[in-house]
């Protein structure tokens, strides 16, 4: 076993692909990997609270600053983590660039091109500057198995929030919950204290959404 300490949850058999030998990150896919799409051919579908869809080509985002960010990807469920260098654009910049707003206590959902996987972030989480839409990994183009051409990277929550193959983004008033909660595979995306302490990483807000179901109702 290449990565020591990996634990298999009881629903591991539902994963279509598990590869802990892969570098620089293990490959874990709940659903089959979709067919490749080139970054320049990527069209994101975005939808605001008005329910109106718009198509945004990757090339429309040329003005959004590119950054690299070294951050851990932490998979608490299978008990591994790797620190890698992501290259991408800040989600908050993209949201602002395309004018996608959610209410302060609102949510964004991110849908994968695999046709099944989707996850959500609270507005605060989504606007945290550590959250990227990444197209590069350790100086290379993002490999297909890791979500190419564009994936979400949310270092301060459990790895499954970092949706691969992002295709659609939509704003919501009520929490759409995300697939892991709906499936009962994880009730809470927050990282355990041990992981947070290990990487000195804290979620932006304790009161809203995934970073804290404990907060007051708004």
């Amino acid at each position: 076993m290449k990565r020591d300490g990996v634990k298999y949850p009881k629903f591991a058999n539902k994963f279509s692909r598990i590869d802990f030998e892969a570098e620089p990150l293990p490959v874990l896919c709940l659903y089959p990997i979709p067919a490749p799409v080139a970054l320049n051919a990527l069209k994101l579908s975005v939808c605001g609270l008005d329910g109106k869809r718009r198509s945004v080509a990757w090339t429309d985002l040329a003005g959004v600053p590119r950054i690299t960010l070294r951050q851990p990807l932490i998979c608490q469920i299978f008990n591994w983590s790797e620190t890698v260098e992501w290259e991408g654009v800040r989600l908050v910049d993209v949201l602002d660039h395309v004018g996608l707003k959610s209410p302060a206590a609102g949510y964004f959902a991110f849908y994968s091109r695999d046709g099944h996987f989707f996850e959500t972030l609270s507005s605060d989480e989504a606007r945290d500057p550590r959250v990227l839409l990444a197209y590069g990994l350790n100086g290379q183009p993002l490999p297909l198995q890791h979500g190419a051409p564009l994936r979400l990277v949310v270092p301060f929550l459990q790895g499954y929030k970092s949706v691969k193959w992002v295709k659609k983004i939509r704003a919501f008033r009520a929490d759409p919950m995300g697939i892991k909660r709906l499936c009962g595979q994880s009730s809470d995306a927050r990282l355990s204290e041990a992981w947070r302490r290990k990487y000195g990483i804290e979620p932006p807000v304790e009161t809203v959404g995934n970073a804290g179901g404990r907060g007051a109702k708004r």
Partner: peptide
Amino acid sequence: LTNRGMVVT
């Protein structure tokens, strides 16, 4: 269908 990214009426 909403969970699958569709806008539904």
